[in-house]
Computed example of a mutant assay.
Amino acid sequence: MLRHRELLKFGTVGAITFIIDTGIFYALKLTVLSPKPVTSKVIAVLVATLVSYLLNRDWSFRTRGGHRRHHEATLYFLISGIGVALYSAPLWVSRYVLHLQMPYTSRLVEEVADFTAGQIIGLLLGMAFRWWAFRKWVFPADQQQVGPIDPPQQDRALIR
């Protein structure tokens, strides 16, 4: 049950930071960084990552052992850096490998491709990686929280 609660909280933090990420991405992409959508995406993800760290540390994974604060933050941002690459890679492929941008396509195709690659595919790749990595390295289960051996093993021990 704890795992599902953590996953729901992690998902809620993800939804909040998705809104932050999307808002910043489009604010930058449609204004001051219009010729640089990947740069816009990286900046948006970095801001969302900072908010994500604070919310995940204090809410989603607060019952886990973790590490000292500076080690935890270092690991969090290192893993999130890998996440930035995962978030940004589909947009980079869409733009610079598949050339789904103007003048090769229409403005509508460019916008749909940017949203699909940057906000959906990138988000799913980054989120799956971060969920796994945060639980494994940043907020590991506290040894005191590991439960007893499962009931079938206990029953077998009583039978012998």
Score class of each variant (00 low, 15 high):
Gly126His: 03
Ala73Trp: 01
Val93Tyr: 03
Ile16Phe: 12
Ala117Gly: 13
Lys9Thr: 00
Val138Asn: 00
Ala128Tyr: 01
Met127Arg: 12
Gly83Asp: 05
Ile20Gln: 06
Val93Cys: 05
Leu78Asp: 03
Asp155Phe: 14
Ile19Ser: 10
Glu111Asp: 06
Ile43Gln: 04
Phe134Ala: 09
Leu78Pro: 01
Thr31Val: 12
Phe139Trp: 10
Asn56Gly: 05
Ala48Asn: 00
His99Leu: 15
Asp21Trp: 01
Ile120Asp: 05
Thr22Asp: 01
Asp114Ser: 14
Arg3His: 11
Pro90Ile: 03
Leu46Thr: 11
Val32Gly: 13
Gln144Ser: 08
Val84His: 03
Ala85Phe: 11
Leu108Ile: 13
Ala85Asn: 06
Ser88Thr: 13
Ile120Asn: 07
Met127Glu: 01
Leu50Gln: 01
Ala117Asp: 03
Thr12His: 01
Leu2Glu: 10
Trp92Gln: 07
Ala117His: 05
Glu110Asp: 15
Gly11Ile: 00
Asp142Glu: 10
Gln143Lys: 15
Leu91Arg: 03
Phe129Lys: 02
Tyr53Gly: 01
Val51Ala: 08
Leu158Asp: 11
Arg68Ile: 11
Arg135Asp: 02
Ala141Leu: 13
Val13His: 06
Ile16Gln: 08
Asp155Lys: 15
Tyr87Phe: 11
Ala89Asp: 02
Ser52Gln: 03
Tyr26Leu: 08
Gly147Trp: 02
Pro151Asn: 02
Phe61Leu: 06
Val42Met: 10
Ile24Cys: 09
Asp21Leu: 03
